[in-house]
Design a protein around this nucleic acid. Structure first.
Length: 477
RNA sequence: GGCGGCGUACCCAAGUGGUUAAGGGAGAGGUCUGCAAAACCUCCAUGCACCGGUUCGAAUCCGGUCGCCGCCUCCA
């Protein structure tokens, strides 16, 4: 069985065929660092993370590169508004991004290059394109790619040059309105680097071409990003890289669908964004990940706080079951390493899990299997079958390596959730314990009316009680 | 206008020719419990936007209609 991914280039599912046995090179377009990342970015990050994790769990050695665009018109504009140098703004936002992506529990990329650290490689690529007649310089010091010279232009986004409308940014110096900038001449006050065409800065697309091939060579196996990057960004990357090298740029083009809110794309320009930091304040990271994985990565996903909460409830049930199993077993099983986690002796569950993920990362189907397995786990725990429970518990440990879900120690996860909920209620642990003691006192006296009144009062304050054989437990609802 | 995609139960969502259409959330009934909660069991789409067609057989393929979205300009 091979891993199959939908290739935007062909519009079809295609098998991932490593060019070197056992090794996969993955480039994923990162973010432009000029403001906080939002839920849309989170989806792209998680999609790449799941892809990388799964391939590694399958035993493939993945070189994963994710870039930072740290010089760009928006960064310059924003920095001017804030009144700090562009480089400082970029640095600040990179730090904020690092926090967000760590919260999301994404594996760190093998390489995380910044555009400004690879200017020489970009200049070399541009010079090569100019020398070959694929690009031309104009008087203001900018260099443009000559789209007409690249017949395959449009093959990724499936459009013909003749059908395209001219861009807004009409530069009289351009030969063709659809030509795009490889290098932008610096205007007064803008950051600049020296080039054969004078002071300037790289265009957006050239940086990914230079960094991707710089770290991964050409061609490499997988290039991905949000679907809004298909055109023009990825189309232009292909044009540059293939014009320059004369060989394909990347084999498989993988694109995740957009996050919408109220059926409208979440984007900074529409002002309808929810930052990752804002989500972090109201839900565990894996609740967001579970929400993402419930919908196939290519399908648009409508985000709402209500859905996030739903996912949080479902996630809680999974951790509750795991915690029960761990309690019976005296502790959690050792975490499986990400690499080769699925090389374990296959069980029917793991085989099916693999089959689902092999099929274009069908995580939604995989989750269906996980929930089925969870129910079975609860069943054998109810029946007191410890051997069966520990076997299922071990299988579920593989879920973390493949999807990035259930990565935490269940008891810790639940305790954290409890603590957060309790803080929201405004009640102290001591107050809750006192109320529980009073209620249990009433229960011993068979004063159930009083006991129920206490429980009801706590419920109104957001504390839910559970009487178990080992005592009364509480959690925050 | 061009290109791409979507429309499956109360909500979300998997399913892309073949037994009873996954799974999650919500809801209903039951087991357990002093009563609850949790867990488990059962129920919840003779039907997959609509209309035609192909086929022994279609949510799945083809044609048409309606509705929605994305890209075509910075965007994950």
């Amino acid at each position: 069985m091979a891993v199959v991914l939908t290739n935007t280039l062909s519009g079809r599912k295609e098998a991932l065929v490593p060019r070197e046995a056992g090794r996969v090179r993955l480039y994923w377009c990162g973010v432009t660092v000029y403001s906080r990342s939002h839920v849309g970015h989170a989806r792209a990050l998680v999609t790449a993370d799941v892809l990388c994790r799964y391939l590694r769990a399958r035993g493939l050695a993945v070189t994963f590169v994710r870039n930072f665009t740290d010089i760009d018109d928006k960064i310059i504009r924003r920095a001017a508004e804030v009144g700090i140098p562009a480089a400082e703004l970029a640095e600040r936002e990179i730090r904020a991004f690092a926090e967000d992506v760590a919260w999301l529990r994404c594996l760190p990329p093998t390489h995380e290059p910044r555009a400004t650290e690879h200017i020489p490689a970009m200049l070399a690529l541009i010079e090569q394109l100019v020398a070959a007649g694929f690009a031309y310089a104009v008087p203001d010091g900018s260099v443009y790619f000559r789209v007409r010279r690249f017949p395959a232009y449009g093959k990724l986004s499936h459009r013909r040059l003749d059908d395209m409308e001219a861009g807004e940014e009409i530069d009289a110096a351009k030969e063709d309105a659809r030509d795009f900038a490889l290098w932008k001449g610096a205007k007064p006050g803008e950051p600049w680097w020296s080039s054969p065409w004078g002071r300037g800065r790289p265009g957006w697309h050239i940086e990914c071409s230079a960094m991707a091939t710089g770290y991964l060579g050409q061609p490499f196996e997988i290039h991905g990003g949000g679907s809004d990057l298909v055109f023009p960004h990825h189309e232009n990357e292909i044009a540059q890289s293939e014009a320059a090298a004369g060989v394909p740029f990347a084999d498989l083009w993988v694109h995740n669908g957009m996050i919408t809110t109220g059926a409208e794309k979440m984007s900074k320009s529409l002002g309808n964004i929810l930052s990752i930091g804002e989500v972090a304040a109201q839900a565990p990271a894996e609740a967001l990940r579970l929400l993402f994985l419930g919908t196939h990565y290519r399908t648009p996903l409508d985000f709402s706080p209500a859905r996030l909460e739903e996912s949080g409830r479902a996630l809680g049930r999974l951790y509750e079951a795991l915690a029960r199993a761990d309690e019976v077993a005296g502790g959690p099983p050792p975490a499986l390493p990400v690499d080769g986690a699925l090389a374990e002796p296959p069980t029917p569950f793991l085989t099916e899990l693999c089959a689902a993920m092999d099929d274009d990362l069908n995580a939604a189907r995989a989750l269906g299997l996980v929930f089925d397995r969870m129910r079975e786990l609860n069943r054998v725990l109810d029946a007191g079958d410890r051997a069966a429970a520990s076997a299922i518990r071990r299988e579920l440990a593989a879920v973390a390596a493949t999807t990035g879900l259930l990565t935490e120690v269940p008891a810790t996860f639940l305790e954290t959730a409890r603590r957060r909920g309790q803080e929201r209620t405004g009640l102290s642990v001591a107050e809750i314990d006192a109320a529980i003691a009073a209620r249990n006192d009433a229960r011993r006296r068979k004063d159930f009316r009083e006991a129920d009144a206490i429980r009801e009062r706590l419920r109104e304050q957001g504390i839910l009680l559970e009487d178990t054989p080992s005592g009364t437990m509480w959690k925050a609802g």
